[in-house]
Design a protein around this nucleic acid. Structure first.
Lengths: 109, 109
DNA sequence: ATAATTGGCAACTCAACGGTTGCGCTTTAT
DNA sequence: ATAAAGCGCAACCGTTGAGTTGCCAATTAT
């Protein structure tokens, strides 16, 4: 599997992380605990519905999971997809690090 | 600097990576060499202008730099911003890895 | 029983995005 | 000198995205 085809699976994850609100939500969920929507919405400058939409995006990207408990929806982080995205970036930087290293020694145009 | 404030700087980078065309462009540029727009557009199923727009997004995110040489614009990868994004994801996963580890041992609600 | 919390669903607005076409300018090739 | 290559700019279009409001159902608290 090429690097690109490995990456396209992570594209939705990157897209999801490309919004500061969702970045904030992921940050709040990074302690591994589970939170209700109102808890997650607290302090954010947008409606509960807005937060719900963002959480839905994160869920579609596989980055969070939710479970209905009584009247609330509890959200938790799902580490795997983000770990995959991280691995892609790690491989990518390793790739051009050595490529640039090669270009530095032999001046190939 | 908190993790979030470190992350919001990476949001445009993540957003830029959230498109499969730009992911492909980054992949093509990952050898550290520089390419003209038509070279980068080759094989992609969209117009030269479309590619130009994507390259502009990558440039705004600081992920590529371009230099005019004669009649062509040569684009090269700029590793730093992507490395920062990678570092953020690495720190984030490390954080919830240990958090989840703690939650596994002591069952704290 | 009644009121408050929590949240899902649908409709709507406005802006941003991805992509296109057309045109003109500069640089290179013939 | 003329043609072609490479690119930038601007206008335009359809779709998606973020965010809102309003309403109703279910659960919990009083």
């Amino acid at each position: 599997m090429s690097k690109v085809s490995a990456a396209i699976g992570s594209a939705p994850v990157f897209a999801a992380l490309g919004d500061i609100t969702r970045l904030e939500l992921v940050s709040r969920l990074s302690d591994g605990k589970h939170y209700s929507i109102v808890q997650l919405a607290d302090g954010l400058n947008l409606t509960r519905q807005g937060v719900t939409k963002h959480l839905h995006v994160l869920k579609q990207a596989g980055m969070v999971s939710c479970k209905r408990i009584g009247r609330e929806s509890r959200f938790t982080i799902s580490p795997d997809p983000i770990a995959k995205a991280r691995d892609y970036l790690t491989r990518a930087s390793a790739q051009w690090d050595e490529a640039i290293e090669r270009l530095k020694t032999s001046v190939e145009e």
